[in-house]
Amino acid sequence: MGSHQKPSTAGKPIRCKAAVCRVAGAPLVMEEVTVAPPQAHEARIRIVCTSLCQSDVTFWKLKDFPGITPRILGHEAIGIVESVGAEVTELTEGDTVIPVFLPDCGECSDCLSKKSNLCSKLPFKVSPWMPRDGTSRFTDLDGNTIHHFLSVSSFSEYTVVDIAHLTKIDLDGDVQMNRACLLSCGISTGVGAAWRTADVEEGTTVVIFGLGSIGLAVAEGARIRGAARIIGIDMKPEKFDVGENLLGVQMVALSCLECIELQVINEMTEGGADYCFECVGLPSLMEEAYACCRKVYK
């Protein structure tokens, strides 16, 4: 072995830093943890970049199950495969991957179907354990168990993920890791809502309530699908430059989320939008979005 090569860590525990949630709602604690080697159908990943999703914040605050401590949160990330466990043929050391919290075993009838992405072999659960054997790959330096989050736990320098929760990607030279990590959750959620779930058709009108990362991703999905008109509704003027200049979204400013003028939206869309997307998470706003939908399809 040349002097410039590092000894392999495959098959050995790795000690690294992680942001651990010790108390619900309290600041995360930066500490050293031990990450066990991957077992069968698993890969150990060196996290290159991770972002913060609202789901992380929601579970961080929960004091009762499915909130649980100690736990390593984080699920929107990108990383490099450090090593793989037995029976893994899809990935190899050095591959670039993004973790996804919805599993895809690639074998069951649901995963093979174009109409479903809810794996029946490894059903989605908000579980604190690895999906196949119900154990953890994390311990603190005293040997105490640290729980997983959404089968990812990306707030750690290294994590172990089941291959059903990993997607191999190839990045060209222009794509930055701190952008690509958003593909893991926010971007795929928004683009997929327009492209796959709603199946937006060419020439239609789309209204988006809330132009955060998911709302902007919906706009991109609608644009790719050929929507003739995309209207974005938001309270924050700083969102307008991104929406208008980058994605060609026609923006409507609001003083508050409860002040939507349905008549205005319906007039702008000549009787209602073909598709409405609520991207804030407010039940009242969902009702408003539904009321802005066209009642009779053109």
Rank of each mutant, 00 (worst) to 15 (best):
G74T: 03
E76Q: 09
E76T: 04
A77M: 04
A77W: 03
I78D: 09
I78A: 08
I78F: 00
G79C: 02
G79A: 11
G79K: 05
I80M: 01
I80Y: 05
I80L: 12
E82I: 00
E82D: 14
E82A: 11
S83H: 05
S83I: 04
V84Y: 01
V84S: 02
A86N: 13
A86Y: 10
A86V: 12
E87W: 04
E87M: 07
E87N: 13
E87K: 05
V88F: 08
T89H: 12
T89F: 08
T89G: 02
E90P: 00
E90Y: 03
L91P: 05
L91Q: 05
L91R: 09
L91H: 06
T92F: 02
E93V: 15
G94V: 00
G94M: 07
G94Y: 07
G94F: 07
G94P: 09
V97K: 01
V97C: 11
V97G: 06
P99V: 06
P99Y: 08
V100T: 15
V100W: 01
F101Q: 02
P103E: 05
P103W: 06
D104A: 14
D104G: 11
C105D: 14
E107T: 15
E107N: 14
E107A: 15
E107P: 00
E107G: 09
C108L: 11
C108Q: 01
S109P: 01
S109N: 13
D110T: 11
D110G: 09
D110P: 01
L112W: 09
L112V: 03
S113Q: 05
S113P: 06
K115Y: 15
S116M: 06
N117D: 00
N117W: 11
L118V: 11
L118P: 00
K121C: 04
K121A: 08
L122T: 06
F124R: 06
V126W: 06
V126P: 10
S127T: 13
P128A: 08
M130D: 10
M130V: 10
P131S: 01
P131L: 00
P131I: 01
R132L: 13
D133T: 11
D133H: 15
G134I: 11
G134T: 10
R137W: 04
F138T: 02
T139M: 12
T139H: 12
T139Q: 12
T139V: 14
D140R: 04
D140C: 03
D140V: 03
L141Q: 12
L141M: 15
D142E: 14
G143P: 02
N144D: 13
N144Q: 15
N144R: 15
T145Y: 08
T145M: 11
I146G: 05
H147K: 14
H147D: 10
H147P: 00
H147V: 06
H147S: 15
H148Q: 15
H148L: 14
H148T: 11
